[in-house]
Design a protein around this nucleic acid. Structure first.
Lengths: 115, 115
DNA sequence: TTGACATATTCCTATATCGGTATATGATCG
DNA sequence: CGATCATATACCGATATAGGAATATGTCAA
């Protein structure tokens, strides 16, 4: 078996740095393909291919406008990533340090009581 | 050129679902390899290989304890993912809807004034 | 030391990628 | 209609995977 398809889910689609760059540009608003080509300095076919992957996992949406296709971010598709990684924030954020102290104390009391 | 190595960064390492499962278990505290094997129902070599990838990107740390090796999550290594995806939260979170309204109003006024 | 246990590494195969180049599709303009 | 612009797709080659099976490494116990 090979690695999971990049179109398997948002995690895989977003693992590619160029695709994150594309999203970062689109975060500023709708863009045509050639705008992305110019802004990122990538070849046009590469951009189209990356956009296809992003489209297939639902991270971007397209809209036709004459000859152009305007791409935009579809935020909610990124939510699974956000939610998953959010669960680990307490492992580095000061916000949770006090809470961790409290929980540690509670656990200690509990252990002392039952042992 | 092929796809970026899974050990290239945390984004790639975490794109694999099994590796996220491993992290989710380790989020509950230090675990030996065989614990993970039992808990996840994976083959031992596969688990070791996934742990290697996670180790190489710094997402987990190891500690030797007799015959066992105890793995634990190294949270801060996940922070780049958190920070990146955080920038998109406003695209779905109600928390930011009011703010977006305000910004839209401001932009509208600005445009009306300069045109 | 020998053996059992815990974990890591190696070898294998199938597959899906990525970039590059060429080309196809589709829309607009004259 | 023919030419041009905008984008998508097809084909190529190199590479890095993921799982499976076998095996190597390392540690403890008797």
């Amino acid at each position: 078996m090979a690695r999971a398809a990049t179109t398997a889910d948002a995690f895989n689609a977003v693992a590619e740095p160029r695709r994150r760059q594309i999203l970062d540009v689109l975060a500023g608003g709708e863009r045509a393909v050639n705008d992305l080509v110019a802004l990122l300095g990538l070849a046009q076919p590469q951009v189209s291919k990356h956009l296809r992957v992003l489209r297939e996992v639902g991270v971007v949406d397209v809209r036709e406008d004459g000859r152009q296709r305007l791409y935009r971010v579809n935020g909610p598709a990124l939510r699974p990533i956000h939610d998953w990684v959010q669960g680990y924030e307490r492992l580095w954020s000061e916000r949770f340090e006090r809470l961790d102290d409290v929980l540690a104390d509670l656990k200690k009391e509990e252990d002392d009581g039952s042992e």
